[in-house]
């Protein structure tokens, strides 16, 4: 039985609107941290937390190195750094080479999240025009976590959700409008011990 402890999200092209959709239904007492890698231009200002905060009842901030991850907060990877999750539930940043042309990379964040949270992790892959995230999804499923993928038909760019679906037996494929509501139900059920 999984009692989930964290949510990790990967998105790329078209991701900002998808993230707004994902976060909008979540109440301010949502009990898990949500950690997001959204591909951005390396020199882009870190405006993303501000944009998402206007669509979300939870506090949204850029992840800082050595920061302790707290429940009920939304964290965004800074542009041009990889975001890694330590096993003591804190963040690290790194300038390792881009992975599949991406930095931050969804795969790097997901893989390290799997080492930290093991099977108590929910992974979500949204719209994007590349295959970043599919390796991370594979790792997440190997460890027994739960994976939700945006229905490629509802995605602005379908490559990322499609390759995630091809990489592993994912648990749920949903149109973007339903992902947030489903996440909330899933987490509430898991807290009541109802998911097996």
């Amino acid at each position: 039985m999984n009692v989930f402890e964290a949510v990790v999200v990967g998105s790329s092209a078209g991701g900002i609107r998808a993230l707004e959709n994902l976060l909008a239904p979540l109440p301010n007492d949502f009990p898990l941290p949500i950690i997001i890698v959204q591909h951005l231009h390396p020199e882009s200002e870190s405006y993303l937390p501000k944009i998402l905060a206007t669509h979300c009842a939870l506090p949204v901030k850029q992840a800082e190195e050595r920061e302790i991850i707290q429940a009920g907060r939304v964290y965004i990877a800074p542009p041009n750094y990889h975001l890694l999750i330590e096993e003591d539930y804190s963040f690290s940043l790194s300038l390792e080479p881009p992975v599949r042309y991406a930095r931050p990379s969804v795969d790097v964040m997901f893989e390290t999240a799997v080492y930290a949270y093991r099977d108590k992790l929910i992974g979500i892959i949204l719209t994007g025009a590349n295959d970043d995230g599919s390796y991370g999804v594979k790792k997440l499923k190997q460890m027994g976590g739960y994976v939700i993928v945006q229905d490629p038909k509802t995605a602005e760019a379908e490559a990322m959700p499609k390759s995630a679906i091809a990489a592993a037996q994912v648990d749920k494929i949903l149109p973007i409008e339903q992902v947030g509501v489903y996440l909330l139900q899933l987490v509430n059920r898991s807290l009541r011990g109802g998911i097996s």
């Binding site: 890694l84 330590e86 096993e87 690290s92 790194s94 893989e111």
Partner: peptide, 9 residues
């Protein structure tokens, strides 16, 4: 060293 990066590499 921060473990996550070393372990991943």
């Amino acid at each position: 060293y921060a473990k996550a990066s070393i372990k991943r590499r």
